[in-house]
Every structure is written in structure tokens, then in C-alpha cells.
Design a protein around this nucleic acid. Structure first.
Lengths: 158, 158
DNA sequence: GCTTATCATCTGCTCATGCAGATCATTGAT
DNA sequence: ATCAATGATCTGCATGAGCAGATGATAAGC
């Protein structure tokens, strides 16, 4: 263990840093990278998250949508108001239960989402070009796997 | 483009999600995973980050330390006070410039850091076991590369 | 019909964070 | 010696997020 810190960079005895220590700042930087693209499209991070979460089928209940994007159900109401006013989403009562809203994208909302996402994708492609092709592919595959895990499986693996 | 959304899961036309959309929630979950380990060691996230950032050589200036861990220099003062009180770190004036503090780990601080990190590493190993070995290796290699990039290179690649 | 539960909505409160400003001690330049 | 800059420290302010509670409309169960 005398060599446990040959390099003073937060690394453990196997020479790598904690996952969180690598992933969290990277996530912050990626969000900062998205910021100008979203601004150019007149979207906040939460507005964009909402657009990403809405697809071909309406999402049933605002609470379900909020949970899907990791937001507070009370705090997305203003976001939804704004998106609805701009004609990017529609909110309709569920005919079978009028307490509930069905949320869907408009064609305009889809276009804006796709345009913003294309801008973000372009930047990501340039960033990922720093990785060897095989590493890039494996990285994305691993990331998809890990990010698809239910949260409690990440928190308490096995 | 008619097939651009075969699956309604926030994916672009190449079928993958935005990096931020995958990495940010993963980072949050990883932090949540660390939480019980840190609590068991009587450490906050920031306290742990400070311990990780201090190595064999003293860190010169509190501001440099704050920047290194992505914290606000004014907000880590309390953290440093607490760590110092517990005998986990030392703060000494630089003999060459008494405005400046030299920050270093005590032996006790090193032990606590290493113990916490071992606990966290154990959980990570279990989590990463879900990946095929080759993907795991490539993922960690890629993650190291990306997380080592200067922030402005991530924000504005090339 | 009455009671309980659910959804959307609004609002208040607390906490963390980022940033700015002020103060004091120290340093460097003139 | 004076002035400007720097580092640590304290504090205030604004903002956003998380959570709780209340309200009104609607639905389900008895």
C-alpha cells in the first residue's frame, strides 16, 4: 500500500477515480455544452427534457411525466404552461378520467425538439471523436446499459 | 426520417439518447449510492471531495482547492473548519506568504479517506460487473479520457 | 349519498449554490 | 511610505430544487 498514491489525483489503489468523481463533473460540463443550443431554440433544460420525454403516444398524467424526467410535479407546471402557449405540446383531459391530463407533442414541438437534438448531437460527435472508435462504441453501449438500470439497482447493486 | 422515432424514449435518429440525458441521472444515482458509505464515515460529499483532493503534497491556497473540486471558495470554509477540528486535515500558513494556507491530510484523514473510498469502490465493482469485461475496460478508459478534458473542451469541442 | 382517494394547481418554507461585496492581514510594486 | 492586489473569511442576496400542505374537481368504493 506504500504505492497507493503514486499520483495525487483522487485515485484509489487501482489507479482510477471514483465513478461519481468522474461522471458528475462530466455531466455538468455536458449540460453547459447543451446550454447555447437550447438557448438558440428558446428552450430551458426542463422544457427540453419534457419535449424529449413526449413521443408518439401521449403521456398520461403530469406526475408520470415529472417522474420520468426527474422533476418535481409542481415545478413543471409552469414549464408545461409555457410549452403549451408556444404550441409545442398539447394537454387534454383523459376522456375516461377528467382529473388526468394527456400530454402530447405537436408537430411544431417535434420539429423543435429534433432540431435542438441535432445541434446537441453534432457537438457530442465532435467530443466523442477524441475516443478510438472501438472505445467509443463500447463506451456508448456501457453507458446505455448503466443509465437504463433502475435507480435502486445503481444505489444498491446486487 | 419516418422511422426517426421507432421507440419513444428520447432517442435521436441513430437510436441513442443525448449524453447528458444518460450521464446526469447516472451521476445523481452514483452520488446517492455513495451517500450511506459517506454517512457511515461521518463525511459530507464536500468533505469527502476535499479529502480526495488532498494528497502527498500540500495544496497551496484554499481557492485552488475549491476550484479543483468544483466548489465555491467561500462555501468550503466551513467544511475545512470541520475537517480541521476532527484532525483530518491541517491548515498552515505558507512561510513564504502568510496570506496563503497550505492544506494537507493528516494520517487519520488519509485512513478515513481510504476507508470510505474502499467502501465506494466495492459498490462500484458490483455495479460494473453488469458489463462484459471488455466493455467495462473500454468504458473506464473512455470515461477517464473524457472526464480529464478541460471543461471548455467539452463545452465547445474543437 | 357519503367518504376517501387521486390529479392538477398553487403556495410556502427550507436548503444548497453561485456570486458579489466588505473586511482584515499580508504582499508586491512604486 | 503609499497604493493596489491577493487570500481567507464572513455575509447578503437571488435562484432553483425538494417537499409539504391546501384547494377544487373528479373518480372510486361502500
Amino acid at each position: 500500500m506504500a504505492q497507493s498514491r503514486a499520483l495525487d489525483d483522487g485515485t484509489a489503489h487501482d489507479g482510477r477515480r471514483d465513478l461519481a468523481a468522474m461522471i458528475v463533473p462530466l455531466g455538468r460540463a455536458l449540460m453547459a455544452a447543451e446550454s447555447p443550443v437550447l438557448r438558440a431554440h428558446g428552450l430551458s433544460m426542463w422544457a427540453y427534457s419534457v419535449l424529449l420525454a413526449l413521443g408518439e403516444e401521449p403521456v398520461r398524467t403530469q406526475n408520470a411525466l415529472a417522474q420520468a424526467i426527474g422533476a418535481d410535479k409542481t415545478r413543471i407546471i409552469g414549464v408545461l404552461d409555457g410549452l403549451q402557449e408556444r404550441g409545442l405540446i398539447e394537454r387534454r383531459p383523459d376522456p375516461g378520467d377528467r382529473r388526468v391530463r394527456l400530454l402530447s407533442l405537436t408537430a411544431e414541438g417535434r420539429r423543435l425538439r429534433d432540431s435542438a437534438q441535432a445541434g446537441i448531437r453534432e457537438r457530442e460527435t465532435r467530443l466523442l471523436a477524441r475516443l478510438p472508435a472501438a472505445d467509443r462504441t463500447a463506451f456508448l453501449r456501457a453507458l446505455r446499459t448503466l443509465s437504463s438500470l433502475p435507480e435502486d439497482e445503481i444505489i444498491d447493486p446486487e
